[in-house]
Amino acid sequence: MSDPTRTSQSTRHATGPAGAAARTPAAAVAPMIRRPLAATFRALITAAALTGLLLAAGGVAAPAALLTRFTVQANLVAALVFACSAHRAWTGRRALSPRLTGALLPFLFLPALLHYAFPAADSTAFALPHATAPTVTQALSHQLLYALTPLAALADWLLLTAPRGFRPACAWQWPAYPLLYLAFTFAFPSAAGAPSPGAALALTIGLAGCLLPLIVIGIDQVRPAPRLRRNRISPKGIGPLK
């Protein structure tokens, strides 16, 4: 298959306007397609993540200390990435790298999985500060950060992105930060703001951090492509060339 960004030997030494046009990569003249629906949905994900973070910060005495929590870090990065993705979809620019957007899925689902499946993990630095009797504000922030934002990111991936965009190298790149963060909680529990997890819980967190990227990459290889808007050489109804 030919590479559209490369020029042939016959056009490489051409001069004048014709030569300049021949040496122009196809990607440089491809029309920009705006995706307002995707942009709106990603802006709503950004708003949900930021709202959850603000509600969580309002319910603690030292909001800056939340920056050491894995849940807060994952949702803060998700808000930044989805804001950038929304801007690119609205202006028709090239989408962000799947290596970056795909990493958000295991990052968001790891604390959500621990929160709902392993209640003991709520006392670790992977979760928000644990409260025996959470207020309405704290309960709402939990729903936004542990449920709504991860599920919305999952829907964006399945419905608004093309499949088979992840590379096998992501299987070892994505778990790197969760494993480093887990080691950080063992080495500096006071800096993490929570006690270190027990051996069994730490093993569970490590396995979940390694398996979630593999699950995401495996699903990406077999899932069907969504009905995305595609480029057309000529508008519908103009001529036989489509």
Rank of each mutant, 00 (worst) to 15 (best):
A89C: 08
P150I: 11
L113W: 12
L159G: 04
P168W: 14
P178L: 03
L241H: 11
A199I: 08
R34G: 05
T124N: 00
F107T: 06
G59Y: 00
P240I: 13
R6W: 01
S10Y: 12
S234P: 03
A74F: 05
A30P: 02
Y181S: 05
R229K: 12
H87E: 14
L76Y: 07
R229I: 07
A147W: 13
L201W: 12
R42D: 11
A62Y: 06
S8I: 03
L241S: 10
P98T: 10
T135D: 06
Y116N: 02
L105D: 10
F109K: 05
D156N: 15
A48C: 13
P31I: 09
A78Q: 06
A79R: 13
N231V: 10
T46E: 12
H142F: 01
G92A: 07
R99E: 12
A64K: 03
H13Y: 11
L96Q: 15
M32N: 10
P224D: 10
T91C: 12
A199S: 14
P17S: 02
R229P: 06
T161P: 06
A43E: 07
A86Y: 07
A169T: 13
P31W: 03
G58Q: 00
T40E: 01
Y177N: 01
G218M: 15
R232C: 05
T7R: 10
A27E: 12
L241N: 13
T161G: 03
G209C: 04
D156K: 00
P134V: 02
A103E: 04
T5A: 15
P195R: 09
T5Y: 00
R230W: 03
S141P: 02
Q143I: 04
L154Y: 14
A83R: 12
F118V: 12
G19D: 04
P226E: 06
R42F: 08
G193P: 05
A14F: 09
R223M: 08
